[in-house]
């Protein structure tokens, strides 16, 4: 892990703001409204109100965790710029490089709009496709922020543990498989 301490003299990087209402949010909104209307027609509008109350109670219970998770997801990219993560993964090679890439993928919070640009930048930093695949798979299968905030909140913990432990070796194996595919293509 690169040191975070020698940054006091620098200014924090400027972050871009994101559009709140985009296409995928609209799809989600329309699906939810349709679901609400369907419940109202099938089970009655009282049931719709009940689901509204239950959902907001659930959100209130999750609020501290979501708040802390949002702070981490917003702050870590400021402290740990993607160029630095890229260099860290790029200078490793072999299986060790895949392990580092998978671990970085699992540890870095943030959605696809953060992860894929970073993964694409790994190539520039010297990483191969195997490391990119290990990084993306580490984020997809083992993302800590997502599992701790969302998965453990919704699903039974034994199920989450089973899934997580079985997935643990996958990013490195997928990285090796991607390397094998690339070698075959070049041969």
């Amino acid at each position: 892990m690169p040191s975070l301490k020698n940054i006091a003299a620098d200014l924090p990087p400027v972050q871009k703001t994101r559009r709140v209402f985009d296409g995928s949010f609209m799809v989600l909104l329309v699906l939810t409204l349709a679901g609400g209307v369907a419940v109202g027609v099938v089970s009655g509008w009282a049931r719709v109100g009940q689901i509204l109350i239950e959902t907001f109670e659930f959100i209130a219970m999750l609020a501290p965790k979501i708040g802390a998770g949002i702070f981490i997801a917003a702050t870590l990219p400021i402290l740990l710029p993607r160029e630095r993560v890229g260099r860290l993964i790029g200078r490793e090679s072999g299986v060790r490089g895949l392990v580092v890439a998978a671990a970085c993928g699992a540890a870095l919070p943030g959605g696809p709009m953060m992860t894929f640009p970073l993964a694409a930048g790994l190539g520039v930093a010297g990483a191969d496709l195997g490391a990119m695949v290990a990084f993306i798979s580490g984020w997809s299968l083992l993302g800590l922020n997502r599992t701790l905030i969302w998965e453990f909140s919704f699903l039974p913990s034994d199920l989450v543990w089973t899934r997580y432990l079985l997935s643990l070796p996958m990013p490195v194996l997928l990285g090796l498989a991607a390397r094998a595919v690339m070698q075959r293509r070049l041969a």
């Binding site: 989600l28 708040g67 400021i78």
Partner: peptide, 27 residues
Amino acid sequence: ASYRASLDTFLFTAPRVIVALLGAGFF
């Protein structure tokens, strides 16, 4: 800078979380 980024992420995430959880409840 961290608080600004957190607020921005919150404004982005909160509506999605609320709408998605409501939708999941309905479905």
